[in-house]
Design a protein around this nucleic acid. Structure first.
Lengths: 150, 150
DNA sequence: TCTGAGCTATGGACTCCATCGACCTACGGC
DNA sequence: GCCGTAGGTCGATGGAGTCCATAGCTCAGA
């Protein structure tokens, strides 16, 4: 993990479909060398994968909300987690310090769907209550933090 | 935007480095046809780009936190936003309904750095107070919600 | 100091892919 | 019925991906 690796990661975070030849030109190595470095970063788990960044509104998922979950005392946290995992609307899930055990990012098409989702979460065994905040607009998301390779 | 487009989006959300030839095999079209469809999705802004999904811990950013910002009455929201935009630690930023105007996802290396970041945000003109919750663990992030194309 | 092991780069070769142009088909409007 | 358009296939070709052999570099140990 040297500065060339960091630059490769930055470049792939900016455009994951860059060709190895292009990456090679930018970091000043040959394409096979870049290929091997990227392969090692993937094998080590530093690069987990490559994802298309989509416009959720264009896919009919224009409503974004953050939901905090407060668990019952004595609830089985794994059961709550498993229930939430089965809800495809839940895009991200963090286990938190504080009163709210889980913090979710959810995406739905309409406010009505959000209401139904909240009801479903509240009905889940182990969930005492939830707190929902709606995002009026997304200023930015998943902005890559430049590494030392720049 | 038909079901083939949705499948292409799903496939690219799963692996953004798939070759056009591979995508073509999976959706049952020729590679040039897939190339053109993907190009149109990009031009329309439905696909915004392609990002490598990295392990933040491996990059020394093992601390994730969510920060809510409460603004001063009469604060210029754009100034607050601009200040936050200049902080590279802020990965995502939503403008929210409710008492907290902004909700941030931030990533830093240590709790000490988080403390400094919180201080910096609180010192920003227009910010009345903040509320921070630390993620003890990330169950999942940016999980793609399958479209109807599956 | 010399030597050998291990790592990582390069360059060549071969295969496969991206991409362009030509043509074909289905469909809707005149 | 005819034409224009949208969107597909096929074929060709230039370039990319990837495997392999080889060469330099670093370091440990004789």
């Amino acid at each position: 993990m040297d500065s060339i690796d960091l630059r490769l990661i930055d470049l792939l975070r900016d455009n994951a479909r860059s060709s190895y030849a292009e990456l090679a030109r930018k970091v000043g190595l040959s394409a096979p060398a870049v290929h091997e470095r990227v392969g090692k970063l993937e094998a080590a788990g530093t690069i987990r994968g490559y994802r298309a960044d989509v416009d959720h509104e264009a896919l009919g998922l224009g409503v974004t909300a953050l939901i905090g979950i407060i668990e019952d005392s004595g609830a089985d946290t794994d059961d709550v987690l498993a229930a939430v995992r089965n809800m495809p609307e839940v895009e991200s899930c963090y286990f938190m310090a504080g009163v709210e055990s889980y913090q979710l990012t959810v995406r739905v098409g309409t406010i009505a769907e959000l209401e139904q989702l909240i009801v479903r979460i509240n009905r889940t065994p182990g969930v005492a209550s939830t707190r929902t905040a709606i995002a009026l607009s997304t200023k930015w998301e998943n902005r890559p933090q430049p590494g030392a390779g720049s």
